Structures are given as structure tokens and as C-alpha cells.
Computed example of a mutant assay.
Amino acid sequence: MGSHRRLAPSGFVRGAGTARAAFTAVSAAAAVLGALPAGPALAAPHGGTGAEVDRLYQEAEKATEAYDKADERAGLLHRQVRDAQDRIARRQQRVNTLRESLGSLAGAQYRSGGLDPSLALLFSDDPADYLDKATTLDRIGTHQAGELRNLRQALRELVQERAEATRALTELEKARRAVVAHKRTVEQKLARARALLNSLSPTEREAYDRASRSGRDDLLPGVSGLSGLDGGPAASARAAAAVAAARSALGRPYVWGANGPSGFDCSGLMQWAYAQAGVHLPRTSQEQRHAGRQIPLSQARPGDLVVYRSDASHVAMYVGHGRVIHAPYPGAPVRYDPVGMMPISSVTRV
């Protein structure tokens, strides 16, 4: 989950490096969360604590997706406001130019046409010269009327642009408030999870870390319907390029709200990897699940997006042989994990 102009890792994210617990670290916790399919039984230290940590990480991931969406919306609105302000400045310049032009014409007309036309003709020393001037003044009057119409149109457009800019500014402020609210939620969830992990004894913490799904390919055989998955070629050249990009990110840290290249959240890694292949993906995992054609898991090939949970709050990239690459959670780097590490919602071929 992450984006272009992304935030640098905040203090609490860096501190979360000590929190090496997985979302679905133990089967006992998974039974509570529904986060892992049935697999080998793993001992869970302080089972209630482990389940609570997993729940907090899952809720933080949902909040991160909401943060990403709000942040993307705020960025779009900011660009709209900036563009509207540029248009307003240009329209204001045109209004000023038209006003100056009309002022010059009005002054010339006043100086040249202050007398009633019939009296001016009577007092003229050269009637032919007067008629020539009158013809010029008539042309000035016609031009002036056109300039007045242009000015009225420019003023209408200026008022409309200002109204649209005001609406965009109001929406931008709402989006910024949403960003702040979601950020606060993420920080609170992660801080609580970190505190719970720190409450474990060293022995319990070590056992909890060992129970992490990371690198546990032995979980895969216990997952129904996944035994037939193999490597196979990528579905397309761009999918192969995206897989190569994702593999190049292995070991880089999870940073919520980030989409690379130094750190990633789950959808941020997918967006960045496909961007290296020249493909633009939406920002959030909920949107990414609809970024292509959905296929059965049995047909998954390298480069396909695997979306997890019923709310589509996590996403990974299938790389073959029953494994995915993803950015798991704070404190865990981009890594390989079994495709069946948690309930699969859908598989999307970009």
C-alpha cells in the first residue's frame, strides 16, 4: 500500500523494526482471525497476545489502505487547485488587458466626440475631414462594443474558475483531514501492537518470531487446491518485467504509505513493480483487484496479483511454485511467502 510523492519512514515505523511478528504468525492466532488456512500446528506464546497483535496489524493495514486512498485524493485535488489558480491568474490578466483597452478607447472617443454630431458638423472648418473622423469613431464604437462583450465573457469565466477553485479547496481540506485521521489510526494500532510484543519475554518473543509464516513453505502442502501450482512462464512480457522489479525489491523495508523505491507497503510494491514495466496500477489493493481480468487461483502465473481477505486489504504478486512476493507488515522486509498465507479473495491478471 504506497504512492509517488510518499512520506519518509516516520519514527514509529522505524521503531517497528523490532516488531518482527507476522500478521498470521501462528495457527492458534489464525483460528481467531481467520488469517491463515489450516496448516501445521504451531505453538503460540501468550496466544491471546499473539492474536491481538495479528488483529492490530490487520486493522492497521486496512487503515493504511484508507490512508493511501485519501492521500492520493488529496494529491489529485492539490493539482486541480494549482491548475485552477493558474487559469484564474491568466483570466485575470485578460480582464485587466480588456479593461485597459476599453479605457483607452473611451478616452479617445470622449476627446474626439464630445460634441453632438450635427453641431460638430456645423462648427467644422472642414466637413470632409469631420466625416472622415466620424467614420473612424463609428469603427471605434463597434470595436468597443466587441471588447465589452469579450470583457463580460472573461468576467463570467473568471467567476466560474474561482467558484470551482473554492470547491476544490474545500474538498482538499476534507481529504487532508481524512489523511490525518487515517494516519493517526495506523500509528495507534502499530504502537499498541509494538507494546504488546515488547511485553513478551525474550523466550516467548523468539518462539513467536519462529512461528512467523516467513519462509515457511511447509505451510503450502496443507492448503487445499494449491498443490498443482508451479512456476511456468509469466502471462506477458510486462508481467515478467514486474516480477523482476518485485524481486529486486526483496529485503527492502515495509513502510506504510510508501510505494518505493526505498520502502513499500503492500499495494505500493505492486504499483511500483508494474510501473517499472510501464504499467500504471491504481494506488490501493481494493482498486488493484479490478485493474485487470480476474482468474481462478489454479491458473495463476508469475506477475498475477493475489488479493487477500474479503475486504481486499492486502495484495501480493504471484511468482510461481506456490509463492508470492509482498510487503508484509511493519518490521518485516519485502519477502517471499506461501500464496496461501491468508484467505485469498481473488487473483487478477494485469
Rank of each mutant, 00 (worst) to 15 (best):
T24G: 09
A44P: 13
L115D: 14
R111P: 06
Y318S: 03
Y110K: 13
T203F: 15
I295G: 10
G331W: 13
R152A: 05
E100V: 13
R309F: 07
P338Q: 02
S345P: 03
K133M: 11
A277G: 08
V324C: 12
E61M: 11
A19R: 09
Y329Q: 08
V334A: 01
G47Q: 14
H143W: 13
W256S: 02
T284M: 01
Q160A: 14
A178N: 10
Q294C: 12
G48A: 07
L155F: 05
R289L: 02
K183I: 03
L36M: 11
E171C: 00
V279W: 05
G340F: 01
S104G: 09
A291V: 06
C266L: 05
A300T: 00
D116I: 15
S285G: 03
R79S: 12
G34F: 09
A8M: 11
R94D: 07
R139P: 03
Q92T: 12
P302G: 08
R73D: 13
P330K: 00
V315R: 00
A327F: 04
R139Q: 14
A235P: 03
G257A: 10
L131T: 05
A41I: 10
E52A: 14
K189Y: 15
G50E: 07
P233W: 07
I295T: 02
R5F: 14
G75N: 09
D126L: 04
P9M: 02
F12T: 04
P338M: 04
R94E: 14
E164R: 10
G231W: 10
A31Y: 06
A234N: 01
T170S: 13
R293A: 13
A31N: 05
D86L: 15
A29L: 11
Q58L: 09
E161I: 08
P117G: 08
V223T: 05
S124I: 00
S3P: 15
I344D: 06
D83H: 12
G251P: 03
G231L: 11
V347Y: 04
P330Q: 04
Y318G: 07
Y308K: 00
D129Y: 13
A108G: 08
R162C: 12
H182V: 06
A19Q: 01
S27E: 10
H143A: 13
A211R: 02
A168K: 05
A242W: 08
R252D: 01
I295V: 11
R184V: 09
A28Q: 08
Q276Y: 07
L151R: 09
G225W: 15
V179Y: 15
M341W: 01
P40W: 06
L119K: 10
L137N: 07
P45F: 02
K133T: 08
A332T: 04
Q80G: 07
A29S: 14
A74Y: 08
A300N: 12
L305Q: 01
D218V: 08
G50V: 08
D132T: 15
A165H: 02
G107E: 15
I140C: 07
S236N: 05
A154L: 04
R192F: 03
G303E: 03
A163M: 12
